[in-house]
Amino acid sequence: MNRIYLDNAATTPLSEEVIDAMVSVMKTTYGNPSSTHTLGQEAKILIENVRRQVADYLHITPAEIIFTSCGTESNNMIIKSCVNHLGVERIITSPMEHKCVAETVLDMKKRRGIEVVYLRPDQKGDFDLAKLEEELKSSGKKTLVTLMHANNETGNFLDIKKVAELCHENGALFHSDTVQSMAHMAMNFDEILLDFASCSAHKFHGPKGSGFAFVRKASGLKGIITGGPQERSLRAGTENVSGIVGLGKALEVALKNMDRDISHIKEIKKYAVERLKSEIEGVKFNGHSAEEDRSLCTVLSVLLPFKDPMIGLKLDMKGIAISQGSACSSGASKPSMVMMMLLTEEEMEKCTPLRVSFSHLTTKEEIDALTDALKEIANTFGIEKTNIADRQITL
C-alpha cells in the first residue's frame, strides 16, 4: 500500500540533504564541543556556524540563540525562568495554546501561585487586542504574555508585532511559541520586539530532538537545566552536534526553496479546499484556515458534517496518515481545547474536526485520494445533504 502523509504539522520527513549532513558529522566530527582539543573544537565550530545562520535568519545576534531539544523544552525553559528568575507574577495567555505552554503555565500557577489571565477567542479564533491592552494596564504585577504565532490546529496567525508593541509599551514580557511558523516564512526579530520564541527542527524537515530558544539579549533569563556552562549557561549538557547541524541544514534548504515551496503548498491547500467543498456537502473550515492571508499555508482545519470519532483510524487503514487535532492530544477521546473554543455544542455533537497539514512534498493526487476516502466514509453515514447552522459561540 502506498502511504499518504498529511500530518506535517505533527512532524515532517527528513530531507535527504539533512540526513547526509548529519551522517557526515556523526562519522567524522564526534568530539565533545566543550573539549579543548582539535576534535572538540571542530564540533564547537559546527555549532557556532549554525547559531550564526539562525541569527542571520531572525536578524538578531548569535548570543540570543540557545540550542535545545525541541520547542517544548524551549517553552518550558522560558516560562519557568520568567517566573523563577525574572519576578513574573502574572501570565496572560489563551486556551488555544499548545499543551507544552498551557500545562507549564498551570504548573507555575500551582507551584508558584502565579495569577493566570486567559484571553478568549471569538468564533473565528481571533483575539481582541484591545482586551489584551486593557488586561496589561489593569495590574501592576510583572506580567508575561505567552501567545503562539500560528495556531497548530487552525493555522490562524497572531499579529505578534502588534502584541510585542503592546507588551513593550506596558512593561510586560512577550513570549511566542513560533514552532509552526519558524522556517515557513520570513522572520525579523529586529522589527518584531518580542522577548522570547521557540523552534523545533522537525517541523521543517529537520531532525527530532533539535530546536532552539530565542532569548532577547539582556533579558536576564536563566537556565533550568544546570550542570555546565554550555549554551551561555542557559542549558547545561553536551550539545547534540549532529542534531544542531541537521537543524542548520534544514533551515538552509527551507530558506533556499521558500518561495517555490510556499507557492506549491498554497496551491495544494487551495486545491484541497475546492475539492472538499465540491465533494462533501456541508463541509466547513475552522478559524481562518481556508483563508490564504490569515492562516499558515501548511495547515487546513476541516469540519466534516458527520460524527465519526474513528475517522483517523479509518483513514489510516486506507493508507492516509492524518490527525484529528494536535499530535500531543490526538489520542484523546474528547475534542481538543482549540476545537472546544471554536465549535458550537451542535457541531461538537454532530461534526468531526480533521487537521490536514501539507508540505512541499504533498501532491494533488494525494488530496484526491483523501477526498475520495472522506466521501466514501461520509456515504456510510447516509450523508447527501447537510446544512450546518451559522456558528454562534458564547464566551
Rank of each mutant, 00 (worst) to 15 (best):
Q53P: 02
M337F: 12
D259T: 15
E115G: 04
L136E: 04
M22P: 02
L86N: 03
E191F: 08
G237E: 03
V163M: 11
L296H: 15
E274I: 11
L14R: 03
T68N: 06
D20F: 10
G155T: 04
L361M: 13
E133S: 11
L132H: 06
K137L: 11
E16G: 07
R120L: 14
M187F: 13
P62V: 05
T363W: 09
H288S: 07
E281C: 12
S336W: 01
R3V: 15
D316S: 15
H264A: 10
P309E: 10
G211Q: 07
H175E: 05
T61F: 10
E115H: 12
S289L: 06
P121E: 05
A186P: 07
E347K: 08
G171S: 07
E349M: 09
P62C: 09
F157D: 01
S326C: 15
T68A: 06
E267I: 00
T68D: 09
I268T: 04
D368M: 06
L14S: 03
I66C: 11
M317P: 02
V54N: 05
T362L: 02
I377E: 10
L86R: 02
L304D: 01
F174I: 09
A218H: 11
H98Y: 02
R3K: 15
L119H: 08
G319H: 07
K124T: 14
N240S: 06
H360T: 00
K44A: 13
G211L: 09
T38H: 12
K161Y: 09
V23F: 00
L147M: 13
K80S: 12
R275V: 05
S357I: 04
M148W: 11
N76K: 12
G125Y: 02
E134Q: 13
A369E: 15
M341K: 13
F127G: 05
P305H: 01
S181T: 12
H85D: 13
S329H: 12
V253K: 09
D293Q: 11
K375W: 02
R391I: 14
K314A: 12
S138I: 00
L193W: 07
C100I: 13
A102G: 09
K208M: 12
I225W: 10
E384N: 14
R275G: 05
